[in-house]
Protein backbone atom coordinates (compact mmCIF):
# COMPACT_ATOMS: atom_id res chain seq x y z
CA UNK A 1 0.00 0.00 0.00
CA UNK A 2 2.98 2.30 0.47
CA UNK A 3 3.41 2.41 -3.29
CA UNK A 4 -0.17 3.70 -3.52
CA UNK A 5 0.78 6.65 -1.30
CA UNK A 6 3.88 7.30 -3.40
CA UNK A 7 1.83 7.34 -6.59
CA UNK A 8 -0.70 9.71 -4.98
CA UNK A 9 2.16 12.10 -4.17
CA UNK A 10 3.49 11.86 -7.72
CA UNK A 11 0.05 12.68 -9.15
CA UNK A 12 -0.27 15.60 -6.71
CA UNK A 13 3.18 16.84 -7.84
CA UNK A 14 2.20 16.59 -11.53
CA UNK A 15 -1.03 18.46 -10.88
CA UNK A 16 0.93 21.03 -8.90
CA UNK A 17 3.13 21.60 -11.95
CA UNK A 18 0.02 21.88 -14.14
CA UNK A 19 -1.53 24.43 -11.76
CA UNK A 20 1.72 26.43 -11.63
CA UNK A 21 1.99 26.42 -15.43
CA UNK A 22 -1.61 27.59 -15.68
CA UNK A 23 -0.89 30.41 -13.19
CA UNK A 24 2.09 31.56 -15.31
CA UNK A 25 -0.01 31.44 -18.49
CA UNK A 26 -2.74 33.36 -16.66
CA UNK A 27 -0.25 36.06 -15.59
CA UNK A 28 0.68 36.46 -19.26
CA UNK A 29 -2.99 36.54 -20.22
CA UNK A 30 -2.77 33.33 -22.22
CA UNK A 31 -4.85 31.05 -20.04
CA UNK A 32 -8.56 30.37 -20.29
CA UNK A 33 -11.33 29.62 -17.81
CA UNK A 34 -11.70 26.22 -19.42
CA UNK A 35 -8.08 25.30 -18.74
CA UNK A 36 -8.39 26.50 -15.14
CA UNK A 37 -11.60 24.49 -14.61
CA UNK A 38 -10.04 21.47 -16.29
CA UNK A 39 -7.07 21.40 -13.94
CA UNK A 40 -9.30 22.10 -10.93
CA UNK A 41 -11.49 19.16 -11.90
CA UNK A 42 -8.38 16.96 -12.25
CA UNK A 43 -7.47 17.80 -8.64
CA UNK A 44 -10.95 16.86 -7.41
CA UNK A 45 -11.09 13.65 -9.46
CA UNK A 46 -7.61 12.59 -8.31
CA UNK A 47 -8.53 13.30 -4.67
CA UNK A 48 -11.73 11.23 -4.86
CA UNK A 49 -9.95 8.43 -6.73
CA UNK A 50 -7.03 8.06 -4.31
CA UNK A 51 -9.20 8.53 -1.20
CA UNK A 52 -11.51 5.68 -2.25
CA UNK A 53 -8.66 3.43 -3.47
CA UNK A 54 -6.89 3.86 -0.13
CA UNK A 55 -10.12 3.29 1.83
CA UNK A 56 -10.12 -0.37 0.78
CA UNK A 57 -12.11 -2.70 -1.48
CA UNK A 58 -15.56 -1.44 -0.39
CA UNK A 59 -14.76 2.16 -1.27
CA UNK A 60 -13.09 1.22 -4.55
CA UNK A 61 -16.01 -0.96 -5.68
CA UNK A 62 -18.54 1.75 -4.78
CA UNK A 63 -16.48 4.26 -6.75
CA UNK A 64 -16.56 2.18 -9.93
CA UNK A 65 -20.19 1.13 -9.41
CA UNK A 66 -21.26 4.77 -9.13
CA UNK A 67 -19.14 5.69 -12.18
CA UNK A 68 -20.89 2.95 -14.16
CA UNK A 69 -24.28 4.24 -13.03
CA UNK A 70 -23.55 7.88 -13.85
CA UNK A 71 -22.08 7.05 -17.26
CA UNK A 72 -24.99 4.77 -18.11
CA UNK A 73 -27.47 7.46 -17.04
CA UNK A 74 -25.76 9.99 -19.32
CA UNK A 75 -25.82 7.45 -22.15
CA UNK A 76 -29.52 6.63 -21.73
CA UNK A 77 -30.33 10.36 -21.56
CA UNK A 78 -28.54 10.92 -24.89
CA UNK A 79 -29.78 8.07 -27.03
CA UNK A 80 -33.10 7.93 -28.87
CA UNK A 81 -35.43 5.51 -27.11
CA UNK A 82 -39.05 4.46 -27.31
CA UNK A 83 -41.35 5.02 -24.34
CA UNK A 84 -41.57 1.25 -23.74
CA UNK A 85 -37.78 0.98 -23.40
CA UNK A 86 -38.07 2.45 -19.89
CA UNK A 87 -38.51 -1.14 -18.64
CA UNK A 88 -35.28 -2.59 -20.06
CA UNK A 89 -33.46 0.56 -19.04
CA UNK A 90 -34.63 0.00 -15.48
CA UNK A 91 -33.40 -3.61 -15.67
CA UNK A 92 -30.09 -2.36 -17.01
CA UNK A 93 -29.61 -0.13 -13.98
CA UNK A 94 -30.46 -3.07 -11.71
CA UNK A 95 -27.70 -5.15 -13.30
CA UNK A 96 -25.01 -2.76 -11.98
CA UNK A 97 -25.14 -3.75 -8.26
CA UNK A 98 -25.13 -7.42 -9.28
CA UNK A 99 -22.07 -7.00 -11.51
CA UNK A 100 -20.12 -5.34 -8.69
CA UNK A 101 -21.44 -7.83 -6.15
CA UNK A 102 -20.02 -10.71 -8.19
CA UNK A 103 -16.67 -8.86 -8.22
CA UNK A 104 -16.76 -8.28 -4.45
CA UNK A 105 -17.70 -11.93 -4.02
CA UNK A 106 -14.81 -13.11 -6.21
CA UNK A 107 -17.11 -15.06 -8.55
CA UNK A 108 -14.87 -14.56 -11.58
CA UNK A 109 -16.89 -16.70 -14.01
CA UNK A 110 -20.09 -14.83 -13.30
CA UNK A 111 -18.36 -11.44 -13.63
CA UNK A 112 -17.35 -12.39 -17.15
CA UNK A 113 -20.77 -13.64 -18.32
CA UNK A 114 -23.36 -11.68 -16.31
CA UNK A 115 -23.81 -8.90 -18.87
CA UNK A 116 -22.60 -10.51 -22.14
CA UNK A 117 -24.74 -13.62 -21.59
CA UNK A 118 -27.45 -13.19 -18.96
CA UNK A 119 -28.43 -9.57 -19.61
CA UNK A 120 -28.16 -10.26 -23.32
CA UNK A 121 -30.82 -12.95 -22.87
CA UNK A 122 -32.90 -11.17 -20.23
CA UNK A 123 -33.42 -7.80 -21.94
CA UNK A 124 -35.17 -9.32 -25.00
CA UNK A 125 -37.36 -11.36 -22.64
CA UNK A 126 -38.52 -8.15 -20.96
CA UNK A 127 -39.16 -6.66 -24.40
CA UNK A 128 -41.30 -9.65 -25.33
CA UNK A 129 -43.38 -9.14 -22.19
CA UNK A 130 -43.93 -5.50 -23.23
CA UNK A 131 -44.90 -6.68 -26.69
CA UNK A 132 -43.90 -3.65 -28.78
CA UNK A 133 -42.30 -5.11 -31.91
CA UNK A 134 -41.55 -1.90 -33.82
CA UNK A 135 -37.96 -0.86 -33.18
CA UNK A 136 -37.28 -3.90 -30.96
CA UNK A 137 -33.90 -4.82 -32.43
CA UNK A 138 -32.63 -1.29 -32.55
CA UNK A 139 -33.51 -0.32 -29.01
CA UNK A 140 -32.51 -3.63 -27.38
CA UNK A 141 -29.18 -3.49 -29.20
CA UNK A 142 -28.60 0.15 -28.23
CA UNK A 143 -29.38 -0.44 -24.56
CA UNK A 144 -27.26 -3.59 -24.32
CA UNK A 145 -24.38 -1.85 -26.08
CA UNK A 146 -24.39 0.83 -23.33
CA UNK A 147 -24.35 -1.89 -20.67
CA UNK A 148 -21.37 -3.58 -22.32
CA UNK A 149 -19.35 -0.38 -22.48
CA UNK A 150 -20.21 1.41 -19.24
CA UNK A 151 -20.91 -1.46 -16.89
CA UNK A 152 -19.16 -4.55 -18.26
CA UNK A 153 -15.99 -2.97 -19.69
CA UNK A 154 -15.67 -0.36 -16.94
CA UNK A 155 -16.14 -2.95 -14.17
CA UNK A 156 -12.80 -4.46 -15.20
CA UNK A 157 -11.27 -1.59 -13.22
CA UNK A 158 -12.85 -3.07 -10.09
CA UNK A 159 -11.83 -6.57 -11.17
CA UNK A 160 -8.24 -5.37 -11.56
CA UNK A 161 -8.37 -3.86 -8.08
CA UNK A 162 -9.33 -7.20 -6.55
CA UNK A 163 -6.34 -9.10 -8.01
CA UNK A 164 -4.34 -10.63 -5.14
CA UNK A 165 -0.84 -9.57 -4.08
CA UNK A 166 2.24 -11.04 -5.75
CA UNK A 167 5.42 -10.05 -3.88
CA UNK A 168 3.91 -6.83 -2.57
CA UNK A 169 2.40 -5.84 -5.90
CA UNK A 170 -1.34 -6.33 -6.23
CA UNK A 171 -4.58 -5.04 -7.67
CA UNK A 172 -4.50 -1.45 -6.32
CA UNK A 173 -1.03 -0.82 -7.78
CA UNK A 174 -1.97 -2.26 -11.19
CA UNK A 175 -5.17 -0.23 -11.19
CA UNK A 176 -3.30 2.99 -10.45
CA UNK A 177 -0.76 2.15 -13.17
CA UNK A 178 -3.58 1.66 -15.68
CA UNK A 179 -5.59 4.76 -14.72
CA UNK A 180 -2.59 7.12 -14.62
CA UNK A 181 -1.31 5.89 -17.99
CA UNK A 182 -4.74 6.01 -19.63
CA UNK A 183 -5.20 9.62 -18.55
CA UNK A 184 -1.60 10.49 -19.47
CA UNK A 185 -2.18 8.92 -22.89
CA UNK A 186 -5.16 11.25 -23.38
CA UNK A 187 -3.16 14.29 -22.26
CA UNK A 188 -0.14 13.38 -24.43
CA UNK A 189 -2.42 13.02 -27.44
CA UNK A 190 -3.82 16.48 -26.79
CA UNK A 191 -0.42 18.08 -26.17
CA UNK A 192 1.40 16.47 -29.11
CA UNK A 193 -1.60 17.09 -31.35
CA UNK A 194 -1.69 20.77 -30.35
CA UNK A 195 2.05 21.24 -30.83
CA UNK A 196 2.89 19.09 -33.87
CA UNK A 197 -0.53 18.07 -35.21
CA UNK A 198 -0.81 18.34 -39.02
CA UNK A 199 -2.53 15.30 -40.49
CA UNK A 200 -6.01 14.50 -39.25
CA UNK A 201 -6.39 10.83 -38.50
CA UNK A 202 -10.20 10.43 -38.37
CA UNK A 203 -11.66 13.71 -39.67
CA UNK A 204 -15.21 12.39 -39.86
CA UNK A 205 -15.32 11.01 -36.32
CA UNK A 206 -13.08 13.25 -34.24
CA UNK A 207 -11.62 16.27 -36.05
CA UNK A 208 -9.24 17.08 -33.16
CA UNK A 209 -7.28 13.82 -33.45
CA UNK A 210 -4.07 13.81 -35.46
CA UNK A 211 -1.47 11.25 -36.54
CA UNK A 212 1.22 13.26 -34.74
CA UNK A 213 -0.84 13.29 -31.54
CA UNK A 214 -1.35 9.53 -31.64
CA UNK A 215 2.33 8.74 -32.40
CA UNK A 216 3.53 11.15 -29.71
CA UNK A 217 1.15 9.60 -27.23
CA UNK A 218 2.25 6.05 -28.07
CA UNK A 219 5.93 6.88 -27.46
CA UNK A 220 5.39 9.09 -24.42
CA UNK A 221 2.96 6.65 -22.78
CA UNK A 222 5.37 3.75 -23.34
CA UNK A 223 8.17 5.75 -21.71
CA UNK A 224 5.86 6.74 -18.84
CA UNK A 225 4.94 3.07 -18.38
CA UNK A 226 8.64 2.30 -18.00
CA UNK A 227 8.89 5.12 -15.44
CA UNK A 228 5.94 3.74 -13.47
CA UNK A 229 6.86 0.06 -13.79
CA UNK A 230 7.66 -0.09 -10.04
CA UNK A 231 3.84 -0.29 -9.65
CA UNK A 232 3.85 -3.57 -11.59
CA UNK A 233 5.66 -6.91 -11.87
CA UNK A 234 6.66 -5.95 -15.47
CA UNK A 235 10.19 -6.09 -16.88
CA UNK A 236 11.30 -3.38 -19.31
CA UNK A 237 9.90 -4.84 -22.59
CA UNK A 238 6.57 -5.75 -20.92
CA UNK A 239 6.25 -2.25 -19.45
CA UNK A 240 6.88 -0.62 -22.84
CA UNK A 241 4.33 -2.93 -24.49
CA UNK A 242 1.80 -2.17 -21.74
CA UNK A 243 2.27 1.54 -22.40
CA UNK A 244 1.72 1.05 -26.14
CA UNK A 245 -1.37 -1.08 -25.49
CA UNK A 246 -2.88 1.47 -23.09
CA UNK A 247 -2.22 4.42 -25.39
CA UNK A 248 -3.63 2.67 -28.48
CA UNK A 249 -6.67 1.21 -26.68
CA UNK A 250 -7.37 4.55 -25.01
CA UNK A 251 -7.39 6.22 -28.42
CA UNK A 252 -9.95 3.70 -29.70
CA UNK A 253 -12.21 4.13 -26.65
CA UNK A 254 -12.05 7.89 -27.08
CA UNK A 255 -13.08 7.85 -30.74
CA UNK A 256 -15.76 5.20 -30.18
CA UNK A 257 -17.51 7.47 -27.68
CA UNK A 258 -17.01 10.36 -30.15
CA UNK A 259 -18.81 8.20 -32.68
CA UNK A 260 -21.80 7.91 -30.32
CA UNK A 261 -21.83 11.66 -29.76
CA UNK A 262 -21.72 12.34 -33.51
CA UNK A 263 -24.54 9.88 -34.08
CA UNK A 264 -26.91 11.53 -31.60
CA UNK A 265 -25.66 15.04 -32.34
CA UNK A 266 -24.19 16.33 -29.07
CA UNK A 267 -20.75 17.84 -28.39
CA UNK A 268 -20.32 16.97 -24.71
CA UNK A 269 -22.02 14.14 -22.89
CA UNK A 270 -22.84 16.31 -19.90
CA UNK A 271 -21.80 19.10 -17.56
CA UNK A 272 -20.93 17.11 -14.46
CA UNK A 273 -17.15 17.70 -14.63
CA UNK A 274 -16.40 21.40 -15.28
CA UNK A 275 -13.90 21.81 -18.13
CA UNK A 276 -14.21 18.16 -19.20
CA UNK A 277 -17.89 17.63 -20.01
CA UNK A 278 -19.75 14.62 -18.70
CA UNK A 279 -18.61 11.41 -17.01
CA UNK A 280 -18.72 9.62 -20.38
CA UNK A 281 -16.22 12.11 -21.81
CA UNK A 282 -13.75 11.33 -19.05
CA UNK A 283 -14.04 7.54 -18.86
CA UNK A 284 -14.29 6.88 -22.62
CA UNK A 285 -10.68 5.69 -22.91
CA UNK A 286 -10.93 3.53 -19.80
CA UNK A 287 -13.77 1.48 -21.33
CA UNK A 288 -11.23 0.09 -23.77
CA UNK A 289 -8.03 0.09 -21.72
CA UNK A 290 -9.53 -1.61 -18.63
CA UNK A 291 -10.64 -4.95 -20.14
CA UNK A 292 -7.61 -5.24 -22.45
CA UNK A 293 -5.06 -4.44 -19.72
CA UNK A 294 -6.82 -6.68 -17.20
CA UNK A 295 -6.81 -9.70 -19.47
CA UNK A 296 -3.21 -9.13 -20.53
CA UNK A 297 -2.10 -9.01 -16.88
CA UNK A 298 -4.33 -11.93 -15.92
CA UNK A 299 -2.92 -14.05 -18.73
CA UNK A 300 0.70 -13.22 -18.00
CA UNK A 301 0.80 -13.23 -14.18
CA UNK A 302 -2.22 -15.00 -12.65
Amino acid sequence: MNTVFVSAFIVAALLGIASAAEAILRARGRSSDELYQRIRSWWIMAAIFFALILSGPTGALWLFGILSYLALKEYFTMIPIRQVDRRIIFWSYLSIPFQYWWIADGWYGMVLIWIPVYLFLLLPLRQVLTGETRGFLRSTGTVHWGLMLFVYALSHLALLYTLPDREGIGGPELLIFLVILTELGDIYQYLFGKTFGRRKILPKVSPGKTVEGLLGSLIATALSAWGLSWLTPFDLPTALLAGLLISAAGFVGDVVVSMVKRDVGVKDTGTLIPGHGGIMDRIDSLTYTAPLFFHAVYYLYY
Binding site: P80, R82, R134, V264, G265, V266
Partner: peptide, 9 residues
Protein backbone atom coordinates in the same frame (compact mmCIF):
# COMPACT_ATOMS: atom_id res chain seq x y z
CA UNK B 1 -35.18 15.91 -27.68
CA UNK B 2 -32.84 13.35 -29.27
CA UNK B 3 -35.69 10.84 -29.19
CA UNK B 4 -37.71 13.21 -31.38
CA UNK B 5 -34.86 13.80 -33.80
CA UNK B 6 -34.37 10.11 -34.51
CA UNK B 7 -37.72 8.35 -34.38
CA UNK B 8 -37.18 4.69 -33.45
CA UNK B 9 -39.25 3.54 -36.40
Amino acid sequence: LPSKRFPAS
